[in-house]
Design a protein around this nucleic acid. Structure first.
Length: 431
RNA sequence: UCCACAGUAGCUCAAUGGCAGAGCAUCCGGCUGUUAACCGGAGGGUUGCAGGUUCGAGUCCCGCCUGUGGAGCCA
């Protein structure tokens, strides 16, 4: 007798095993009945044949409701007719807990209904597949940096002031020290790490109190932010490109079944190979001009602009050298053209928009101080940051990758709310 | 904050201004290979809230509430 998981059944054909899990679905044809068991690793069909079983065991079928927990014993058989490919001809079936009427049926539901029951929704196959892919992506992120000499350098969640001075932050009372804010980026701290360790990555949740209400926005989302000393903008683009390719390849290697479950077009992911096209902001505006999309030179791109710029490419597109006026104070200006910043964004294909934003950082003390004043930021709060330029300043670069947008793109799904177990949005904080 | 759309049974949706309906779910019955199984039967409604027009409002008008996704902002 072996206690095992459904994912192991292929190795156990012909053997008697014990499985435990939850009822995914059931069907009856009178004297032969089918239970579909879900155990978190897959689904398996369990067959109850009346003539082979005691009355008591055969009738557990009647008491089992959707999502009831139970355990079974039986011999593993390969079966093309069985969902999951394997079935158990049961010798025993024991109920652990009978579920009350389960609200999420195998039929369609609306988004509000499902979001209110997110704690149950994560049991269904599509959500299961998406969250497994999220797991692979996060694992790949860590594996990529860990195997290339980067140190994980955690940034604080509570911060004394805005990192970039632009977006609206969540505010909270912090004892006698006044207000604290939930971080919108760990990058400034990552720069301190890069000066200490050479190569670091910050990986954690970030918070934006913007009242954004679109399929691409959460108020709480995860971001990974590598920062590398002595990297210039080109090195930064090389790193981001290699990194994204690695992530996509990891998903293709580990999650083919999940991609099939969510009906993702695999060929679109197979295209994601180096090198990625690189165009300047200036060239991007010419694409808009050619397509007849009205645009004021010098502005940042809106979501529809990003779609128009990237839609003709079959892989992520790197756009670099944005007008410095629309970018953050810490970005270094292009010595060739002082109106431009050494910034780069990566636009995912298929209209998914910006998934990476990064830059070479300003490394000159006087210039950085002037920028802080220009942006009317509280200088005291940035004193430690200026220290990084006082004590052995070097050229350095980094970027941030939004995990949920990356998951949405790789999975080909409509809305980022399905890419994290419990999404936090402007009008939703439960469950 | 602004713009657009939506709200009817537990769920997903129908109903020319004229009797409030279907499928699924639930309950009862049938079926020895089902595949969102199928077949027969039953129960299930303050049509988001409040007002107005009308002989008559789920339907038309006004206000509010809730939801959705889009703009701005960004990953």
């Amino acid at each position: 007798m072996t206690k095992t998981y459904i994912s192991d059944l292929s190795k156990l054909v012909g053997q008697e095993v014990e499985l435990q899990g939850w009822l995914y679905n059931k069907r009856s044809s009178g004297k032969i009945r089918f239970l579909i068991l879900r155990d978190g690793t897959g689904i398996a069909q369990c067959v109850l044949v009346k003539n082979n079983l005691s009355e008591e065991v055969f009738n557990t079928f009647d008491a089992l409701t959707q999502e009831s927990s139970f355990k079974v014993k039986g011999v593993v058989k390969q079966s093309d007719k069985a969902p999951g490919g394997f079935e158990l001809e049961l010798s025993d079936c024991t109920i652990i807990s009978v579920a009350q009427e389960y609200p999420i049926t195998p039929k369609e539901h609306g988004v509000e209904f499902l979001a209110d029951r997110r704690h149950l929704w994560v049991r269904s196959s599509r959500q299961h597949a998406i969250l497994r892919i999220r797991h692979t992506i996060i694992h790949a992120i860590r594996e990529y940096f860990d195997s290339r000499g980067f140190i994980l350098f955690d940034a604080p969640i509570f911060t004394p002031a805005a990192c970039e001075g632009t977006s609206t932050l969540f505010e909270t009372d912090y004892f006698e020290l006044g207000k604290a804010y939930l971080t919108q980026s760990g990058q400034l701290y990552g720069e301190a790490g890069a000066m200490a360790f050479g190569k670091v990555y910050v990986f954690g949740p970030t918070f934006r109190a913007e009242k954004s209400k679109t399929r691409r926005h959460l108020t709480e989302f995860w971001m990974v932010e590598p920062e590398v000393a002595f990297n210039d903008l080109n090195d930064n683009m090389d790193l981001a490109e290699d990194f994204l390719e690695f992530i996509v390849q990891s998903v293709l290697k580990n999650n083919m079944e999940d991609l099939k479950t969510i009906e993702r077009n695999i060929s679109k992911l197979e295209n994601v190979k180096k090198p990625f096209p690189r165009i300047s902001y200036h060239e991007a505006t010419e694409i808009l001009k050619r397509k007849g999309i009205p645009f004021d030179y010098g502005n940042d791109f809106g979501a529809p602009d990003e779609t128009a710029i990237s839609e003709d490419y079959d892989r992520p597109l790197i756009v670099h050298r944005y007008p410095s006026a629309v970018k953050a104070f810490y970005m270094k200006r292009d010595p060739q053209d002082e109106t431009k910043a050494l910034a780069m964004d990566i636009l995912a294909p298929e209209g998914y928009g910006e998934i990476v934003g990064g830059s070479q950082r300003e490394d000159d003390y006087d210039v950085l101080l002037a920028r802080i004043k220009e942006h009317e930021l509280p200088q005291e709060a940035f004193d430690w940051y200026l220290d990084l330029r006082r004590y052995g300043s070097v050229p350095h670069s980094g970027f941030g990758l939004g995990v949920e947008r990356t998951v949405a793109w790789i999975c080909g799904i409509e809305h980022v709310r399905e890419t994290i177990p419990f999404a936090r949005m402007i009008y939703r904080i439960t469950p």
